[in-house]
Amino acid sequence: MAAAGAQGYARCAEGGLVWRELDGLVLVYHRPSGQTHMLASPLPEIMAALTDNPQLPSALLAHLSEAYDLADDDDGLAALELHLAELTALGLIRSAPCATP
């Protein structure tokens, strides 16, 4: 269990993203920056799993591995953390302290 205040991840305010499909890919238009991102799996799934309340990567991984065929182990967690950092740097999701573990 992580201590309260550890870094979690949450989705950004509603209305900032426009989603469109393109055979097998997801296009995201990010309104605040005017940038277009082309996302391949599992990035759209990760973004869809986020909520307004920040979640820890470990909790997210548990959730994602239930819904999809993802490895719920240390390698899976490291890969997920990389994806989360990448999406945060683009401003597509936000990182915030978790209130509760």
């Binding site: 393109l22 055979d23 890919l25 082309m38």
Partner: peptide, 8 residues
């Protein structure tokens, strides 16, 4: 040509 490539 795939849609993703066309878009890019």
């Amino acid at each position: 040509v795939g849609q993703g490539e066309v878009f890019m």
